[in-house]
Design a protein around this nucleic acid. Structure first.
Lengths: 250, 250
DNA sequence: TGCTTCGATTGATCTGAATCAAAGCGATTT
DNA sequence: AAATCGCTTTGATTCAGATCAATCGAAGCA
């Protein structure tokens, strides 16, 4: 697949929403189709909030699955530690998304969840969720939908990576992030990267040097621009999406 | 990760069960924890059977999601057709597994499901399943568990592939298949590959020549042996799993 | 202010997989 | 039996990405 083609596929990312810094439970739930009653009930059991500072663990691999977490603000990575000590990033999770799904079938967390910046989550005890779902069955149904959607979203991206080159992988990754930012109400093509080149590389199956080179190349080709060079893990990435033959803006 | 390490991880594949050629609904459901009543109810709505011959479509990408399919016998691949016409394999599915999950969040199938050999499936209309779940809520709950388990299983494998070399990818793939065969009651380390080198390569992000070379190398290293050479897509693969320093048998 | 640290960038070299090309085997057809 | 077809294997060459290595910029600290 040519990079051009790749970019064209995603040209539908074109509607801007206002910016928001923290995400209410309502904002998390409405797009999924929960009704007012369901949101109210959910609010009751999900009242407990936790703050995690940068590099802090939300949960660890091997620990018992007890809660799902709705990210109110911040950014997380999930990763597994391999036998040889290397850390493999399995996903990135942003404000407004659900965390903890890795354990849904095993009852045991299969990966670590680590904050990439100061973050705040809303804890949803799974036992309570199941309990309440006995009286409101649709609630669990909605949750399963959210869950499978998030799992499938990632899965789909990963599958396609197999046949791609470094530059295409990075572009796919950025477009995926972009789409998720837009969905959460952030501005269209400008966003901050909270993770390092190494973490991106781990996720995409590339080395950090290769990621860096791919970034440079995408800049040379005017596909992205990066402000604040060298501001570590805080680059502002501005995607210039090209449509057809013309170049459509930042 | 060294290949040796890789193989060690999976040394727990060590219990043999008897062989079975078709899988009853009961066999499919029991391991998941469904009780007799639930199985009976499920049997009522899942009575319709379909036979698909080699290369036949079970469903197509873009079609509306209506049913889940329990594979009673046979072997399927799921794949997506990219813009440029190339076919990307997204998964393999064997007797006793559930098919159709790709559409669970979108209501539209995202990939084609194609039989790799003459196969038989049991159709489970999703609408009926939802209807019945209203009176037996645990049923849908069980199903969601099966679904997330199957999705996560694949997802986990794919994520790890990123950092692996060709030989390791193939070994991981074979071990994954092996484990699934064992779970379904087939003998331990001997099984038939129903897919071509090209399909394996597509799934693993490798070219068919590379897959072929990796097979040869694994043979040279006595890690596998292949009988009936050149019997197309019908190789008998015998895995010799090595544990610790000693070599533990076929 | 200078020193250290962490991450990013860039260059040079090496290597594993893609690519191009040619046989090979088994099954099926004629 | 000969010819064809589909899939696999193997060899030679090329190239993308890994690896090794040096430098740099920004932030934090003594």
């Amino acid at each position: 697949m040519s990079l051009q083609t790749l970019l064209n596929i995603h040209h539908d990312i074109s509607h801007i929403k206002s910016s928001c810094s923290t995400c209410s439970l309502r904002e998390l739930c409405l797009p999924v189709g929960l009704n007012e009653e369901e949101i109210r009930v959910l609010g009751d059991i999900a009242s407990h909030k936790r703050r995690i500072s940068r590099s802090g663990y939300l949960y660890r691999a091997g620990s018992k699955f007890q809660s799902l977490f709705a990210i109110r603000s911040g950014f997380f990575k999930t990763c597994i530690l391999e036998q040889d000590g290397r850390q493999q990033v399995t996903g990135f999770h942003m404000t407004g998304e659900l965390l903890g799904l890795d354990a849904i079938s095993t009852e045991i967390h299969t990966c670590d969840a680590i904050a990439l910046e100061h973050s705040e989550v809303c804890e949803i005890p799974f036992a309570k969720l199941e309990e309440i779902s006995r009286t409101i069955p649709s609630l669990m149904h909605h949750f399963h939908k959210i869950m499978s959607r998030e799992i499938v979203r990632d899965h789909g991206v990963m599958l396609l990576l197999g046949s791609m080159k470094a530059e295409e992988r990075l572009a796919t990754f950025l477009l995926n992030l972009s789409r998720r930012f837009v969905m959460r109400g952030y501005s269209e093509y400008n966003f901050n990267l909270r993770m390092t080149r190494e973490e991106i590389g781990s996720y995409l199956g590339l080395k950090l040097e290769t990621v860096s080179r791919a970034f440079s190349k995408l800049q040379d080709e005017n596909i992205i621009t990066i402000d604040n060079k060298h501001v570590q893990i805080n680059d502002i990435v501005r995607l210039k999406i090209k449509m057809g033959n013309s170049t459509c803006i930042t």
